[in-house]
């Protein structure tokens, strides 16, 4: 099995050139998809028989929650790659993904709270998923804070990698214990994000929105990764030519 592809993938310069070609496509497709999906969800789908129009928030809340969780999983894989194969690009990805993941985590929390108001009349509901999302936000902030606190790049890279691996081991435990805690204390309230049997005309815009958000995330990550590459490889000749 030749590993050249894998190692080539690891070199920042190669990634910089390839991503240069992908970027315009990503930008156009993600923004178009998001606009179409949200317009469709907002204006053209009929309201939900139970929750009325407030359910339209689902087209942001669900993609944001999915994204927040899957970004953390991606960070854990990048962390494993950094620790095992010591590929610098993986650490750059880890460093770059954290703020994006945190922003989507906040978006999911806020939209969940806003959605809770018309449905239950209170802004914050200690629902199992919202609480797990809140703890996930703590994990994100922990990684961003640790990255800021350690100044030598190598030590910071490996420390954040270890922290995100410890975090990813902890996520199922947290989810399990929060769900268990939730059922213990509350009766069977309507689970906020449990999708009521989705009528097809609601399901399609949701899937489109999820795809749009994921493409948007890839685009943002490629943008940030290219900048991180320039900053980290500033001593190499190809960056010096690029900059001057």
């Amino acid at each position: 099995m030749n590993w050249t592809f894998f190692h080539k993938l690891g070199s920042p310069k190669w990634f910089y050139d390839i991503s240069g070609k992908w970027l315009p496509w990503l930008q156009v497709s993600s923004l178009v998809l998001i606009l179409v999906a949200l317009a469709w969800g907002l204006a053209f789908t009929p309201p939900d028989y139970l929750q009325g129009n407030s359910y339209r928030i689902i087209f942001i809340h669900v993609p944001a929650s999915f994204l927040a969780q899957s970004i953390y999983m991606m960070m854990a894989t990048a962390a494993a790659v950094t620790l095992i194969w010591r590929i610098k690009l993986a650490d750059m990805a880890l460093k770059v993904m954290a703020p994006v993941g945190a922003s989507f985590c906040i978006l999911s929390l806020v939209t969940g709270a806003i959605w809770g108001q018309p449905t239950w009349g209170t802004w914050w509901v200690w629902d199992a998923r919202l609480t797990s999302m809140l703890i996930l936000l703590f994990l994100y902030i922990g990684i961003i804070a640790l990255r800021g606190a350690i100044h030598t790049t190598e030590a910071a890279a490996k420390a954040c990698a270890i922290l995100s691996l410890v975090g990813v081991v902890n996520i199922p435990i947290i989810k399990f214990s929060v769900d268990w805690w939730n059922t213990l204390h509350q009766g069977a309230t309507l689970k906020l994000t449990e999708k009521p049997s989705m009528a097809p005309e609601m399901l399609w815009p949701l899937l489109l929105a999820i795809l749009g958000f994921y493409l948007f995330f890839t685009m943002v990550m490629v943008l940030r990764l290219r900048i991180e590459i320039i900053s980290r490889e500033r001593k190499t000749r190809w960056v010096k030519e690029l900059v001057s």
């Binding site: 640790l146 420390a159 214990s177």
Partner: peptide
Amino acid sequence: ALTVKVQRGGVLLTLLSLPLYIPVLIF
């Protein structure tokens, strides 16, 4: 261990450890 070289690492230590404490507290 992660914050051993951070000057005022106390708050960061709390931030890193709290998510790991939650399941223990719940049970």
